[in-house]
């Protein structure tokens, strides 16, 4: 790995006071950014400068900064989570940029993800989809059966685990030209549909989750495959096909 150096960059960042305000792109110049710093640390550096200048810092979402919580977002230079694939914004480093670069930073754009402030969006539509059916009902009155006591085909277990890796960051919606949430919902449906514990409520689950997804105002999937490319957890399009099968089968039963 090459040694860290300092670069000077130009930033074009979406600024919006609140959900109702009209936002716009603002330009900032930021000098002496270490290429060893993460993208979010670069924004921290910008915010420190803005605070020192008695200006409003840029609001952006972040939490674990380890690529696992799904809290960070940001549409960077026209791509969800920036130029790397398989990476969240918090795991993106400034070594991916060059001295003198102009970097565009925008919030996720979706009717179902309204902007709260600056780069922060409200992703509670994902929570409501989960609440509509993304769970397995378990009797916790003392009669719970250990999950390991139920034999599960290795292939199904692996696919379920891969689907469960979805962190719900919303990059799939952000990058999809249609603003579709089908990769997220497909992963959440698949995660349970593949396991015997999830099959009991499979019919209601897929019908309720898809209904909620449609009510939230997400677009329709046209299979461009952009979501799969930009997903930081590598969730496969296979999950959307499985959801489609589950939905058709559940509709005929229901």
């Amino acid at each position: 790995m090459s040694a860290a150096k300092n670069i000077n960059i130009n930033l074009k960042i979406w600024r919006q006071k609140n959900a109702k305000a009209k936002g716009s792109m603002e330009t900032y110049k930021l000098d002496n950014v270490s290429t060893a710093s993460s993208f979010l640390e670069m924004l921290d550096q910008l915010n420190e400068e803005l605070v020192n200048e008695k200006k409003e810092p840029v609001a952006f979402d972040h939490d674990c900064r380890e690529g696992i919580c799904g809290m960070c977002s940001l549409y960077i230079n026209g791509r969800a989570h920036g130029p790397d694939t398989g990476t969240t914004t918090c795991q993106l480093h400034m070594r991916k940029f060059n001295d003198g670069d102009t970097i565009f930073i925008e919030p996720w754009r979706s009717k179902a993800f309204p902007v709260v402030k600056d780069l922060v969006v409200d992703r509670s539509s994902f929570d409501r989809i989960q609440q509509a059916g993304g769970f397995v009902s378990v009797n916790t009155s003392g009669n719970t059966i250990d999950a390991n006591a139920t034999p599960i085909n290795k292939g199904d277990a692996d696919k379920s685990f891969e689907a469960a890796a979805c962190i719900g960051c919303g990059a799939c919606v952000a990058t999809c030209k249609n603003g579709s949430a089908m990769l997220f919902v497909g992963a959440k449906v698949s995660q349970y549909a593949l396991l015997p514990q999830g099959k009991v409520e499979a019919t209601e689950r897929v019908l309720n989750m898809v209904r909620q997804m449609d009510e939230e105002g997400f677009g329709n999937c046209t299979n461009t495959g952009a979501c799969e490319v930009e997903c930081p957890k590598g969730i496969s399009l296979e999950n959307i096909a499985r959801m489609n099968r589950e939905y058709l089968s559940a509709s005929l039963k229901g």
């Binding site: 074009k12 979406w14 792109m25 549409y75 230079n77 026209g78 791509r79 130029p83 565009f104 925008e106 754009r109 979706s110 009717k111 179902a112 990058t175 030209k177 249609n178 603003g179 579709s180 105002g217 997400f218 677009g219 329709n220 046209t222 299979n223 461009t224 495959g225 952009a226 490319v229 930009e230």
Partner: peptide, 29 residues
């Protein structure tokens, strides 16, 4: 469907690099 999909993103991106992750044919049906 195209109309509904356009409505799903009322505010467009200032910079959108669709070619980075999908084919022209898929984005312009």
């Amino acid at each position: 469907l195209d109309l509904k999909n356009r409505n799903a993103r009322p505010v467009s991106y200032v910079k959108f690099d669709g070619a980075a992750n999908s084919s022209w044919a898929s984005r312009n049906m």
